[in-house]
Simulated scan of single mutants.
Amino acid sequence: MRRTTTTSLALAGAVLLLAGCGSKSGSDTDTKGAGKVSPSAPSAPASGGCASTVELKAADTGRTVCVAKGGEVRLTLDGTKSRPWKPVMTSGTALKGINAGLALQSGDATAAFRAAADGTAKLTSTRPLCAEPTAPGGVSCKGIQEWMVTVTVK
């Protein structure tokens, strides 16, 4: 029995060691070295102190980001079938929608924009705070989770 336990532990340790070999670490810059900003990871800005690419997630709500004119803003909001994100809306003329080029899972929202003109735009989306009940007597709420990011184009 002792030999089996020792062998099992050694095998488990080897699997964990190998699993770590494929993990990613380091900064979030693209392979071309252009300014790519994921608000959680710093990178080199493009001209004028603004990034050439900005990638946003649900956790970035409330942030203000700067993207260089001609650059891109891409975002993915991970939702669920029972708590889906509404399509992302934009205000102003600073950003122009482009093809995000991604397949969506049920409940997700994705969008991509080209920084077309100097100015400011707001990106917004919402989703239910709670899933709708699937059975009579289930818990329900009418709360809404809001997502909003301000984008400055220079």
Rank of each mutant, 00 (worst) to 15 (best):
R2A: 05
R2S: 05
R3Y: 00
S8G: 15
S8Y: 09
A10L: 15
A10E: 07
A10P: 07
A12F: 13
G13H: 06
V15C: 04
V15T: 09
L16Y: 04
A19S: 15
A19K: 05
G20V: 01
G20H: 05
C21Q: 14
G22S: 14
G22W: 06
S23P: 01
K24Y: 14
G26F: 06
S27N: 12
S27R: 11
T29H: 06
K32H: 10
K32T: 15
G35H: 01
G35P: 01
V37K: 01
V37H: 06
S38L: 07
S38N: 08
P39M: 03
S40K: 04
A41F: 11
P42H: 04
A44D: 04
S47Y: 07
G49L: 04
C50Y: 05
C50V: 07
S52K: 10
S52Y: 06
T53F: 06
T53Y: 09
V54G: 03
E55V: 10
A59P: 08
D60K: 01
R63H: 10
V65E: 05
V67G: 03
A68F: 02
K69F: 04
K69Q: 13
K69L: 06
G71I: 02
G71W: 00
E72P: 00
V73W: 02
L75F: 08
D78P: 13
D78E: 11
D78G: 13
K81V: 15
K81C: 11
P84E: 06
P84N: 10
W85E: 00
K86Y: 01
V88E: 02
V88A: 05
V88L: 07
M89K: 15
T90L: 03
T90K: 10
T93R: 13
L95H: 00
L95M: 06
K96I: 11
K96S: 15
G97S: 14
A100I: 09
A100G: 06
L102H: 07
L104M: 14
L104A: 13
Q105A: 11
Q105L: 07
Q105K: 13
D108I: 03
D108H: 09
A109S: 15
A109L: 07
T110S: 14
A111I: 09
A111V: 08
R114H: 09
A115Y: 01
A116C: 04
A117N: 12
T120A: 14
T120G: 04
T124R: 12
T124I: 07
T126M: 11
T126E: 15
P128Y: 14
P128H: 14
T134Y: 10
T134H: 13
A135I: 12
P136T: 09
P136I: 08
G137S: 10
C141N: 12
C141F: 10
C141K: 13
I144N: 08
Q145K: 13
V149M: 03
V149Q: 02
K154D: 13
